[in-house]
């Protein structure tokens, strides 16, 4: 048996959008799948999220955005990545993201987009597949 530490996911709600039904559902699905999950609660600035990710040493950052502000938020967050020297390896965005914006988000540095309508299984499987290759400590 290995005593591998659990993969830690920080799930964040950036901006002022209060729609948290989906984010909380994803938190529960990730907990059930065996991840360690930190949920920020509502209305976090990019700075607060970066700071929390650093403090928690999160492996994965997920952001739930339903207001349509995903591109400006991703751009603002990307600038903080180096400033906070984040060791995070995976960056996911979920919410109301039109297909035409997926490419732009990936160009900014987002690893995957799970738009409204995505299945919980898809999210869990994706994180498991991506993190399976990582060395554990």
């Amino acid at each position: 048996m290995t005593s591998a530490r659990k993969i830690k996911v920080l799930l964040a709600k950036p901006g002022l959008d209060g729609h948290d039904v989906g984010a909380k559902v994803v938190v529960r699905a990730l907990l059930d799948a065996g991840f360690e999950v930190v949920y920020t609660g509502l209305r976090k600035t990019p700075e607060e999220i970066a700071k929390r990710a650093k403090e928690e040493n999160a492996d994965v950052i997920g952001m739930s955005i339903l207001s349509g502000s995903h591109i400006p938020f991703a751009q603002r967050f990307r600038k903080l990545w180096d400033e906070y020297n984040l060791g995070t390896k995976l960056w996911l965005i979920g919410g109301n993201v039109p297909k035409k914006d997926h490419g732009a988000l990936k160009d900014i540095g987002v690893d995957a987009v799970f738009a409204t309508g995505s299945k919980l299984d898809e999210i869990v499987t994706y994180i498991k597949e991506q993190t399976a290759r990582w060395p554990r400590n």
Binding site: G15, L16, D17, T45, P72
Partner: peptide
């Protein structure tokens, strides 16, 4: 959302919203 959260349009926290 800025109006709903009590922020003016020129508040930095309202940026993008």
């Amino acid at each position: 959302l800025p109006t709903q959260c009590g922020l003016d349009s020129d508040d930095p926290a309202a940026e993008g919203e």
